[in-house]
Simulated assay, not measured.
Amino acid sequence: MLSTNNNLSHLDYRQQIKVTSTAETAFRALTENIHLWWSKTSASLQKQGGQFTIHFENGYWWTFKILEFTPHSELIWKCIDGEPEFNKEWIGHVLHWSITQDGDQTLIDFHQVGLTPELQCYEVCSKTWDKFIVEHLKTHLEIT
């Protein structure tokens, strides 16, 4: 489990979905197939110590360093850069994906350490994550 020194970690954004997909397919969606449910990527090196940048049509982008890369089980990314200015609030945030196979279903837990209600972008970012995880990722995995 991801540990944090943030005393407000219970306020960090979290989301969980259960899908009728394998852990292997879910892991692939969170690595090599991010562009199919989130947005296009560049400079992608999908392995521990690697990094990737995600780009959106509105010009926003974030770069993540991959801190943990455990196939079919866990991914931890750290945001190391982003644009525009309000997106800089994400720099230093740790995004933790946990994948658990449960029979013919897979549970995906997401936790963004640092994305709390005190941030300017919290409302927009949490609603956008809900859309991408609950709608886009879940739909992608249910039809894959």
Rank of each mutant, 00 (worst) to 15 (best):
3 S>C: 12
7 N>M: 11
7 N>K: 13
8 L>K: 15
12 D>S: 13
14 R>G: 03
14 R>W: 05
17 I>C: 03
18 K>Y: 05
18 K>C: 07
19 V>L: 04
19 V>Y: 06
22 T>D: 04
28 R>D: 07
28 R>W: 05
28 R>E: 08
29 A>C: 03
29 A>P: 03
29 A>V: 00
31 T>I: 01
33 N>E: 11
36 L>M: 12
37 W>D: 06
40 K>A: 15
40 K>R: 15
42 S>D: 08
42 S>C: 05
44 S>P: 01
45 L>I: 14
46 Q>R: 07
49 G>S: 06
52 F>N: 05
56 F>H: 12
57 E>A: 14
57 E>C: 09
58 N>K: 09
62 W>Q: 11
63 T>P: 00
68 E>G: 09
69 F>K: 04
71 P>W: 02
73 S>E: 06
74 E>K: 07
74 E>F: 02
76 I>N: 06
77 W>P: 00
79 C>H: 05
80 I>N: 10
83 E>I: 08
84 P>Y: 09
85 E>I: 12
87 N>K: 12
87 N>W: 14
88 K>A: 12
89 E>I: 11
90 W>T: 15
93 H>S: 11
95 L>R: 02
96 H>G: 11
97 W>C: 01
99 I>V: 01
100 T>R: 01
101 Q>M: 01
102 D>M: 11
104 D>A: 15
108 I>C: 00
109 D>I: 01
109 D>C: 04
109 D>K: 07
110 F>V: 03
111 H>A: 05
111 H>R: 07
115 L>K: 05
121 C>P: 05
122 Y>G: 08
122 Y>K: 12
123 E>G: 10
127 K>P: 12
130 D>V: 05
130 D>K: 06
131 K>D: 12
134 V>H: 14
139 T>V: 11
140 H>I: 02
141 L>A: 03
